[in-house]
Simulated assay, not measured.
Amino acid sequence: MSAEITTPGPGANVKVHRVMRGWLQDYLADRAGMSTSMLGKIERGERPLTQVMGAALANAFGMTLDELLGQAPVKVGDEDRLKALRSAMRRFDLPTGDPEMPERLEHDLSELFRLRGDANLSAVTHKLPGLLIRVQDNAHATGLPEDWAKVADVYSAVYWLAARHRWMTLAELAVVKQKQAAERASALALAVAARDEAGTFLNGGDFAGGLALVDQAVVRVESTMQGRTRHLGLGLLHLRGMTLAGRLQDKKTAERHIKAANEAAEAFYTDIDVQGMHFGPENTITHIVATQVDLKRNAEALEVAERYLRTTPTLPATRIGPLHMNVARAKLAVNDRDGAVDSLADAWDAAPQMAKVHPTSLELSRVLVSLHKRSNPKINALAKRAGIEL
């Protein structure tokens, strides 16, 4: 048994909330439908708090999953940028400028999506407020569907940034505005907005609600879209669907979304990037790996992931980082602790800013530090990067 330590990581929040309510472990475990032994291991850092268990515990506490996981702190210097971003969002229907030069706007949008792909959260935070004002002004001035699609794309980036930090009030406002812009844009923009709205259900732990939303959007895409764009819209939705089904432990529904995502991916020889939206065979693989780990098919997940990583992945850091996190989850589940440390270090190398705030990264770091001897140099390096005191 490892000593109990105070470290960053969502699992550490469980004991805080339990003690704050004056509950004993057996009472909370009973309310959450898990064993007292498992709860004790989560609180001591001997087992990671998964999203599945986190949702059950959050429900037992009467809170949402994102509230239990905790928000990432706002970096020094970003407070004013986030205030400016919220101000721009409030002024969605209050244009203040003239149309933009199309080439300049396209250049700046491409730069935003490149930064998002690199998982450069700081740079995205810096760029979003001004760019959001510009795309909104431009769309109001031209009234063109393609310009409203740009607005929806920027709001999708706002959702992504907020969800990564678990700033869910901001994320939920972003998807409302995204949908309003998408309704003036295109069927594809509406499909992406539905995917992101379902993401807020995922972040909040309402996996069933998110699945229902995905199913509604799939029906709409099937009846309104054609060609490769239809495959893209369906593919993005089915990726979200498999994740939600995996968190819900619904194997049959997960398999249905996996099959449908693979079928949609067959329309693309390689992964495509449309305004920061990646879809194709590779991105489908990364989502399948995550879902298999959620369904406790860890050996299968490792086989798929390791076969993919032996190729030359073309996906950006924002996808490769979480893939390594999920490989680390699977390795820890099969008791390959050293391998889990290596994979988690790979996640930090691929997307350091994302790893710094991602609940999976933080929780794996907490558990691996707790389980390993403090003299392990890899653990020491990992702890330092995660801000864990040994």
Rank of each mutant, 00 (worst) to 15 (best):
L68A: 08
D30A: 15
G54N: 04
F61W: 08
D30Y: 09
N59D: 14
R81N: 15
L28C: 14
T36Q: 15
Q51D: 13
G40Q: 05
K75L: 08
R44I: 04
M53W: 10
S87G: 07
G77E: 13
V52S: 05
L82T: 13
R81E: 14
L28Y: 11
R31D: 06
A58P: 03
D30N: 14
G70V: 00
R90A: 07
D78R: 07
I42W: 07
L94S: 15
T50L: 12
R90Q: 05
E79I: 13
E43V: 03
A60P: 09
A84C: 10
Q71C: 14
G33R: 04
L65Y: 01
Q71L: 12
I42H: 11
T64I: 01
M38T: 11
L57V: 11
F61H: 05
R91T: 10
K41P: 07
P95W: 01
Q71Y: 09
P73E: 11
K41S: 12
G97T: 06
M89Q: 03
M89G: 02
L94F: 09
R86D: 02
A56W: 08
A88H: 00
G70A: 00
M89W: 05
A56M: 15
G62F: 09
P73V: 00
A60L: 01
Q71D: 05
Q51E: 15
K75S: 13
G40A: 10
R47L: 05
D30T: 14
D26E: 13
S35W: 00
A32K: 03
I42N: 10
A32D: 07
T50F: 13
A56P: 03
P73G: 00
A32I: 04
A32M: 07
E43H: 04
G54E: 05
L94P: 00
L57A: 05
P48W: 12
E46M: 10
M34G: 09
P95Q: 01
D80L: 12
A72G: 11
K75W: 04
S37E: 09
L82K: 03
G62I: 03
K75G: 06
D80N: 08
A32E: 01
D66T: 05
S37Y: 01
D66S: 14
R31V: 05
L28N: 05
A88V: 02
R86F: 06
A84S: 13
A29G: 09
A56R: 15
G33H: 04
G97L: 10
E46S: 13
S37R: 10
L94E: 09
T96F: 00
G62K: 08
M38G: 06
R86H: 02
G77R: 12
A55M: 01
R86T: 11
E79H: 15
E43R: 03
D66Q: 01
D93M: 14
D80I: 14
L85A: 04
G45T: 02
